[in-house]
Design a protein around this nucleic acid. Structure first.
Lengths: 203, 203
DNA sequence: CTGACACATGAATCAGTCGTCATATTGAAA
DNA sequence: TTTCAATATGACGACTGATTCATGTGTCAG
């Protein structure tokens, strides 16, 4: 684990349909098992058992537990971004887009606590993938905000800082009201938050 | 780990000065080692080596690795709260207090990435301690905001939702600008954020 | 001073996992 | 139908690391 990545034969991409399916099966099993038990507690045996394959088969497609995990994190990122892009697609202006984005995100995490767990644990298991996850998000977010400032839709201000601040809100609200508390009124939460964000806290 | 907490002889509190010192030493060593390597990678041997004691001694004071970790998380919570309370003590009004609190927090995490790591990892190792950490924070936060609304210092609004939203901002900004980027201008960040929070995003 | 309890030791136990490998099986191209 | 690269198997070796325990040593109340 601390070793400098011994030169093991690179697990090659599958060349047949059968291989592709198996690889995909491992990925899905890993998502379920790691999302539920956490990375440390999930064993390769757990994953292969769930995928319905032999332990050795795992190593045909991945070099290590870390490697599946990395791939999973990257996958989650794409998934979340696609989901949000879709949710926000035809918003008339930036503030509406932000509002819809937050609402969609809060719903999203509630239905996929597993994915949320994986991303969070990446902080320890695959720090670079973790950073990339948020950095990629923040970049897109920042560009949108900057554009909105140019359009005069929102007040002048540092887009990057705002992006990270807003992201942070979403993450924590998602955990508190999307995951911990099942029956939260997500619409009301979004309203409250955007009341604060749009008009400010001053009396 | 999944087992229903086997009934092991409860590791009693030390009865002598010597014992207290040893226990404290274990706690400090655990903080350093776990904070650096992460919970999974940190072994009891690492901890006892760092504390300068034999492996067996560990089990005189703690029942398991999990147990030290829990205690560490709780300790971190008290520490952070005390630090913030101090930083905010004589603020003239709530918005100023929030501003100072955020500024202090951003500085705090930069100097103690170790503590931050521990709290984050608690999400997986000791979920209830993790929740309690944030819930305790949010409660205090919420009470302050509610009081400020009553005083007319900030606009009407749901204190709990606001508390979690603001906490989330602080957490993510702390990670991005306090830990990842060493030389960020924290004062400017606080200004940007509070410009948004106080006046809102609308043009 | 001394008995008794608190504390300390570290080798041994024990449970578990990762990753390998020698041996099948599959399926599609020739 | 044959053939062989790709894929699959699962038992096993090697190792890691948490926890225990039988055996000491320190400390302090009386």
């Amino acid at each position: 684990m601390t070793e400098p990545a011994a030169r093991r034969p690179v697990a090659s991409r599958p060349r047949t349909r059968r291989g592709q399916d198996t690889r995909e099966g491992i990925l899905r099993a890993a998502e379920a098992v790691i999302g539920e038990l956490g990375f440390a507690a999930a064993s390769i045996a757990d994953i292969t058992r769930r995928a319905g394959i032999a332990q050795g088969t795992f190593y045909i497609y991945f070099q290590s537990k870390d490697e599946v995990f990395r791939e999973l994190v990257i996958e989650m990122g794409k998934l979340t971004r696609a989901f949000l892009a879709e949710a926000v697609a035809d918003a008339p202006d930036r503030l509406t887009a932000e509002r819809r984005g937050l609402r969609a995100f809060l719903g999203f995490v509630g239905t996929r606590p597993t994915l949320y767990n994986i991303v969070m644990e990446a902080r320890f298991v695959a720090p670079d993938a973790y950073r990339q996850y948020y950095t990629t998000f923040a970049r897109g977010y920042g560009q949108n905000l900057a554009a909105a400032v140019r359009e005069g839709e929102i007040r002048e201000g540092d887009a990057e800082i705002r992006a990270w601040a807003l992201m942070g809100m979403a993450i924590t609200l998602g955990e508190r009201f999307g995951i911990w508390e099942g029956e939260a009124d997500l619409d009301r939460i979004v309203e409250e938050v955007f009341d604060m964000l749009e008009r400010g806290l001053r009396p």
